[in-house]
């Protein structure tokens, strides 16, 4: 075992997959030998594999994704990097109309084994164009798989699975998770899609969380434990496919569900999780489902404002206590 950061774990996953399969190549802005990725995820890869396979592009997000789609349709396994998740908007047609629909629309004749990596998340004071969490959009688009790793361990195992997957995978990372660390096995491992991870077991309240919110929930769990309250943290790890059973099993056990999401509340992933639990485990609920999310605003710049909108461990503690008292 060795301790790696989330960035290092992603880097290792890319390196291993590029060594394993020569069809894998990387395409994106400033991922090559000069900058090595805005967050250094591609560090050293251009030097090892060459600039043909670690390909710097013009600032042309639609064409980066479109070219990756075309290459994926014709025998390659591209991993495209979009530097910030907010910039996925520039490539939305290629993602939502092309990558997501090609296999279906052409009756299964063509496949698009493509990974689009991109970081989400607020908390770095980089304001409204570099801080969003838009995973709900992609979960809402049939034909896309959606991975949302919260830890370095999950990030590595899920990225390797994503690269080997025959469908287009939106692989979202989180800027605040990048410096978190996990123990990583020396031997190769993959994490299957559609298997949630219970990050902490507990019997009082189920807390559904992704990305940085998993870390906030873990902090909250320690505080709550001191008060004699044990929460169970369910991290879905992939939103598509979604491991409904693990979520439902946990709710059946605890009878209470708190959803924590770093996204604005309206039509966020929490709305979907709440609907699933209401439809399939309503009788087990001892109190109404509660959501903690960002308000429906853009992400503001000033730290005072930004901290106000991002859910944190204190909000989770309060939310759990409110649920138990309701």
């Amino acid at each position: 075992m060795k301790e790696l950061t989330y960035v290092e774990a992603l880097n290792e996953a890319l390196r291993e997959e590029m060594m394993r399969d020569e069809r894998v190549f990387l395409i994106g802005e400033d991922i090559g030998p000069y900058w090595e990725g805005a967050f250094k995820v591609t560090k050293g890869l251009a030097k090892q594999f060459g600039v043909e396979r670690v390909r710097d592009t013009p600032i042309s997000e639609a064409c980066i994704v479109g070219a990756a789609v075309g290459a994926a349709m014709t025998g390659m396994r591209p991993v495209a990097e979009i530097m910030f998740g907010d910039l996925l908007t520039l490539a939305m047609d290629q993602i939502a109309n092309q990558a997501a629909k090609i296999h279906y629309m052409f009756g299964g004749q063509l496949k698009v084994p493509l990974v689009i990596r991109s970081p989400f998340g607020a908390g770095k004071s980089i304001a409204a164009h570099h801080s969003q969490s838009l995973e709900a959009w992609f979960m809402h688009t049939p034909g896309l798989k959606v991975a949302v790793p919260s830890t370095a361990y999950d990030a590595k195992g899920l990225l390797k699975t994503a690269i080997r997957d025959d469908d287009p995978v939106m692989f979202f990372e989180h800027k605040l998770c990048y410096t978190t660390k996990s123990m990583i096995p020396e031997e190769e491992y993959l994490i299957p899609f559609g298997e949630a991870d219970v990050k902490r077991e507990g019997s009082d309240v189920t807390v559904f969380a992704t990305f940085w919110m998993v870390h906030q929930a873990l902090k909250a769990a320690d505080k709550l434990s001191k008060k004699g309250i044990e929460i169970e943290i369910v991290d879905p790890r992939t939103l598509v496919p979604l491991d409904k059973e693990t979520i439902l099993d946990s709710v059946r056990k605890t009878g209470r569900l708190l959803i924590v999401e770093e996204d604005c509340k309206t039509c966020g992933i929490g709305a979907e999780i709440a609907a699933i639990v209401s439809e399939e485990a309503f009788d087990y609920l001892e109190s109404p489902i509660k959501r903690i999310a960002e308000p429906d605003t853009p992400i503001p710049f000033s730290p005072v404002l930004e901290n106000y909108v991002i859910p944190n461990d204190e909000a989770i503690v309060k939310g759990v206590i409110d649920l138990l008292e309701s």
């Binding site: 070219a67 789609v69 390659m76």
Partner: peptide
């Protein structure tokens, strides 16, 4: 762009 990707 898809044609560009196929050519790549």
């Amino acid at each position: 762009p898809i044609a560009v990707g196929a050519a790549l």
